Amino acid sequence: MRTFDGINSAEATEKNIALKINVLYPPVITKLSSNDKSIEIINSTIRVQRGDNINIVCTSDANPLATVFWNGQLIDSPTLTVISVQHDAVWTCQATNTMTEFDGVISTSNVTRNVSARVLCKNRCTY
């Protein structure tokens, strides 16, 4: 700054301040996939041969990270493993996270997504 008579009265200084913002958001199931190249998931439906073993991975996005699991499974895991599929079925993936707001309010959010299996038979199916 300069005074009216042209004398420097102060010098400009620059300060950079980093601000980290942690945005909390509930889970979204972003992808259902299989590491088996013969299994294709289309519109949350898979077609498998009777007797096949399958693995389906459920992926989510959330902050804080969500716990991802398949309802009815013995262990909490984002991977569903089915040994020797015998008939049509529906499985449900669930993602859950808990957020603590600035005012201390705790909220839990859940989201689910179903996957339907259509079992194909080489010969006539008998259940």
Rank of each mutant, 00 (worst) to 15 (best):
T81E: 09
T112G: 11
Q94Y: 07
I21F: 11
T59A: 15
L19P: 02
D76W: 13
R2S: 15
A12C: 15
V115Q: 01
P27Y: 00
T59I: 14
C58P: 02
S116E: 13
D103V: 05
D61H: 09
F102M: 15
T112C: 08
A117F: 12
D5Q: 09
A62M: 02
D5L: 06
C121N: 00
I42Y: 01
K15V: 12
L19R: 03
T3S: 09
K37C: 03
F4D: 14
N71S: 14
Q94P: 06
T112L: 06
A66R: 03
G51A: 07
T98R: 05
M99Q: 12
D88W: 05
M1D: 13
T98I: 05
F69A: 06
Y25W: 01
S84C: 01
W70K: 05
M1Y: 15
V119G: 00
C125I: 08
L120C: 05
V68H: 07
I29K: 02
D88M: 04
I83A: 11
I46M: 01
N8L: 13
T92V: 11
D52K: 09
M99D: 09
R50C: 11
S60R: 04
V82P: 00
C93Q: 07
S33P: 06
N97W: 02
F102W: 15
F69W: 09
R118M: 15
Q49H: 06
T98F: 01
I56D: 02
A62N: 04
L120K: 04
N123H: 13
V23M: 05
I83R: 14
V115L: 12
C93M: 07
T59F: 10
I41E: 06
R124H: 15
Q73G: 03
T81W: 04
N43G: 03
T81F: 12
S107F: 05
I75A: 14
V85N: 01
L32M: 10
S77N: 13
V85Q: 02
W91C: 03
P27M: 00
I42D: 01
A89L: 08
N43S: 09
E40K: 10
S38A: 11
K15L: 07
R2Q: 14
A66H: 05
D76N: 14
E101H: 14
V115E: 00
N110Y: 13
D52E: 11
T3R: 03
N97D: 10
P26Y: 09
L74F: 15
I39N: 01
V85T: 08
S109Q: 10
L65Q: 15
D36V: 07
Q49T: 12
T96E: 11
T13E: 06
M99W: 05
N71C: 11
S60V: 04
N63V: 08
N55Q: 14
A62T: 10
Q86Y: 02
N114D: 13
V90H: 01
V57W: 04
P78C: 01
M1E: 13
A18S: 13
V105G: 04
K20C: 04
S109E: 08
V23I: 13
N114R: 10
L80Q: 03
N123Q: 14
D103H: 06
D76I: 13
S44V: 03
D88A: 07
T126N: 11
G72L: 03
R118N: 15
L24Q: 10
T30H: 03
R124K: 14
L32Y: 05
A10W: 04
R50D: 09
